[in-house]
Nucleic acid binder design. Sequence first.
DNA 1: CGGTGTCGTAACTGAAATAGTTACACCGCC
DNA 2: GGCGGTGTAACTATTTCAGTTACGACACCG
Lengths: 145, 145
Amino acid sequence: MAANSRLTVAVHVLTWMALVKGRGRDVVTSDQIADSVNTNPVVIRRSLGELRKAGLVEALHGAGAGWRLLHEADAITLLDVYRAVETEPLFALHRAEPNQKCPVGAGIRPALEEVYDGAETAVRGALDGTSIADVLRGTLAGRAG
Amino acid sequence: MAANSRLTVAVHVLTWMALVKGRGRDVVTSDQIADSVNTNPVVIRRSLGELRKAGLVEALHGAGAGWRLLHEADAITLLDVYRAVETEPLFALHRAEPNQKCPVGAGIRPALEEVYDGAETAVRGALDGTSIADVLRGTLAGRAG
DNA sequence: CGGTGTCGTAACTGAAATAGTTACACCGCC
DNA sequence: GGCGGTGTAACTATTTCAGTTACGACACCG
């Protein structure tokens, strides 16, 4: 399975919500979103739950229940979404502690962490430059906007 | 298991080879490397096999068999290693094709690919700035060099 | 006040990947 | 031919992801 598709699903969810909000419908259900993403509504609710914890959407209960965007599409960057759904670092360190009696085994982990932090920062910077509104424009135009 | 540790293992392998090469030993066995990484020699040979395909190391057979670095440590960047061991993209697209009858489902994939390409490029740029020699220096010094 | 629609989440499943392990054929020097 | 190490297949345990079923919680509405 390699990399996961959580960022893809979450961005799709928000992009779809932005689209239909522009058509005047600002409260939508996980079933409706699932129809566009082509997956199970529970998968969508799980994604929306993470976006809710990040303050990007809110859930409404009772009659007419559903989900609503809390910010304008151009105020939500893919970095916001990344932070909301991605917990693990890009690269894992050793599964087992390396040999501490070896100079490399004893010292390589902090050295790698510094490099990996730089890579992580680079990714975040790249994602920070694109908003949900950009993705929506690119989606409708056939480009990333 | 989340992210894999292939990049970590491969960098550790090359860093250790660079260290012992500096001590005058330029042919080493997968058993010796496995002792530093603290894993199974087969895991190391698998990693070395990818590095060999990328032209970073060579394998020697017969008596005194083992592995040898083909370049100086400061001529091998972590981007070289990344290219050698990492095949999958950073972020996966939808597992199932999204709904093509929906404007978002029909157009979001190329838009996402463009953004993901940018993130991938950013990571490669970050890794390109660090060499195995840098990692070795940082490992021995307690910093990334 | 009970019916209704949706959320929120637990629990389970199938599929896939990682990394560890055993095993063994092959290679090439001595 | 013996020996040490490579190269790789095969198997396993563990973990993750995503899909699915199920069901209690919630809040409006008639």
